[in-house]
Structures are given as C-alpha cells and as structure tokens.
Amino acid sequence: MAFLSRMKQSFGSTFSFFTDSWSELKKVKWPNRKELTSYTLVTVITVVFVSIYFTVLDLGISELLRLVFE
C-alpha cells in the first residue's frame, strides 16, 4: 500500500511540475522577429570569433610544441 501512495505522490508532483512550468512560460516576454534575428546574429558572430580564436591558439601551441620537441 505504501508503494501505491508513493507512486500517486510522484505522479502528482510530476503533474504539478508541468502545470507550474506552463504557468511560468505564460509569464515570459517572448522576443519579436526583429529581436530574435538580431540575437541570433550576435550569437553566430560570437561563435565564429571564439572558434577562430581557439583555432589560432591551438595552431600556435601545436607549432610551439613541434619546435620544442624536434
């Protein structure tokens, strides 16, 4: 009997979680199309610059190690 009450309690908390999550999502101010486009552009540009930075850093360290160990 204790098992069934625990199952009921866990399902109740799961449904409560989804209900609370849905109500919180209704409070969110979603970006409009222009904001979303600008945010996406900033994200893509940032990822490109960080990728270039780490690529150059990796190539520099690799070249330095090649010079040291040869």
Rank of each mutant, 00 (worst) to 15 (best):
A2G: 07
A2F: 11
A2V: 06
F3T: 04
F3D: 14
F3S: 06
S5A: 10
S5Y: 13
S5F: 14
R6E: 15
R6K: 15
R6F: 12
R6I: 11
M7R: 13
Q9K: 15
Q9C: 03
S10V: 06
S10T: 10
S10D: 06
S10G: 00
F11Y: 12
G12V: 01
G12Y: 04
G12I: 02
G12R: 10
G12A: 04
S13H: 05
S13V: 13
T14S: 10
F15W: 11
S16R: 10
F17N: 07
F17H: 08
F18Y: 15
T19C: 00
T19S: 12
T19M: 04
T19F: 10
D20H: 03
L25V: 03
K26R: 11
K26D: 04
K27C: 00
K29Q: 09
K29Y: 00
K29A: 06
W30Q: 05
P31A: 04
N32H: 07
N32Q: 08
R33M: 09
E35M: 07
L36C: 07
T37K: 15
T37R: 14
S38T: 11
Y39K: 04
Y39S: 02
Y39L: 07
T40F: 09
V42D: 11
T43G: 05
T43M: 02
T43C: 01
T43I: 01
V44C: 02
I45S: 08
V47T: 09
V47A: 13
F49R: 01
S51R: 01
I52W: 03
I52S: 03
Y53T: 06
Y53D: 01
Y53E: 01
F54R: 13
F54W: 14
T55Q: 05
T55A: 14
V56K: 11
V56I: 15
L57T: 07
L57G: 05
L57K: 14
L57R: 12
L57D: 12
D58I: 08
D58G: 15
D58C: 05
D58N: 10
L59A: 10
L59F: 05
G60K: 10
G60A: 14
G60C: 06
I61A: 06
L65W: 04
L65M: 09
L65T: 08
L65Y: 06
F69D: 06
F69M: 08
F69W: 03
E70T: 03
E70P: 01
E70G: 03
E70M: 02
E70W: 02
